[in-house]
C-alpha cells in the first residue's frame, strides 16, 4: 500500500469510526482486507491478538494493520489518523454540547450510537467467524460454533471474565495443534 493510500485510509478509519471496537473491525476489514492489502487469515488473527491486550481497541487494531502494510511508519500514520477526530471534532462538539440541554434528539443520538455499536460488532463477528469456519472441516466448524456459544453463554450469564476464555482457548489451540486435530 502506498503512503498516500495509507494516509487516506487512516483518516477514513479515524473519522468514520462511530460506535466502538466493532466499527473499527469492519472499517479495517473493508479498507485493508477487501481492498486486497491484508489476507482474511492474517486479519482474523490480528483481531484475536487485539483482544488479548488492554487499551483502546481501535488504536491497537489500526496499529497492527499499519504495521503489516507499511512497517513502523504505517503504525504512526494509522495512530495519527485515528486520533485526528479528537483534535478536530472533539473541541467543537464539547463546546456545543456543553451548552445544550438533553432533549429528545440528543437522547435519540446517544441511543443510536449504542445501536451502531451493536450492529457493527455483530457484523464484525460474522466477518471473522466466516474466516474461521470456511477453512476447517464440517465437524470442526460445528464444534467451534458450539464451543464459542457455550463460552459466550458462560461469560454472559455467570459473568466469567473474558480473560479465562482467551487463556483457555489459546492453550487448547496449542494442544489440539500438537496432537494434529487442528
Amino acid at each position: 500500500m502506498d503512503i498516500y493510500t495509507l494516509i487516506i485510509n487512516a483518516l477514513k478509519v479515524g473519522y468514520l469510526a462511530y460506535g466502538g471496537g466493532g466499527t473499527m473491525i469492519v472499517l479495517v476489514h473493508r479498507l485493508f482486507v477487501e481492498a486486497g492489502y491484508l489476507s482474511e487469515d492474517l486479519f482474523s488473527r490480528m483481531v484475536g491478538t487485539t483482544f488479548l491486550v488492554p487499551g483502546p481497541f481501535g488504536i491497537n487494531i489500526g496499529a497492527l494493520a499499519g504495521l503489516e502494510v507499511a512497517g513502523a511508519l504505517g503504525v504512526v500514520i494509522m495512530v495519527l489518523g485515528i486520533i485526528a477526530p479528537s483534535f478536530t471534532i472533539m473541541p467543537i462538539l464539547w463546546k456545543l454540547m456543553g451548552n445544550m440541554p438533553d432533549n429528545r434528539w440528543t437522547i435519540g443520538f446517544k441511543k443510536s450510537t449504542k445501536v451502531i455499536g451493536w450492529a457493527l460488532s455483530f457484523f464484525a463477528a460474522i466477518l471473522i467467524s466466516k474466516t474461521v469456519v470456511v477453512h476447517v472441516g464440517h465437524t470442526l466448524a460445528i464444534a467451534i460454533i458450539i464451543y464459542a456459544l457455550i463460552w459466550i453463554g458462560m461469560m454472559y450469564k455467570y459473568k466469567i471474565h473474558p480473560a479465562w476464555f482467551i487463556g483457555f482457548t489459546m492453550i487448547l489451540g496449542v494442544i489440539l495443534g500438537m496432537v494434529g486435530i487442528v
Partner: peptide
C-alpha cells in the same frame, strides 16, 4: 508446525469476542 493451533485459536478468540460484545450491547438495547 507444533504450535500452528495458535492460528485457529486467535481467530476463534476474535470471532467469539466480537459476538460477545454484540450480545452485551444487545442486552442494553
Amino acid at each position: 508446525p507444533a504450535l500452528s493451533g495458535l492460528k485457529l485459536a486467535l481467530k476463534v478468540v476474535g470471532g467469539t469476542m466480537a459476538l460477545y460484545a454484540a450480545v452485551v450491547i444487545l442486552e442494553r438495547i
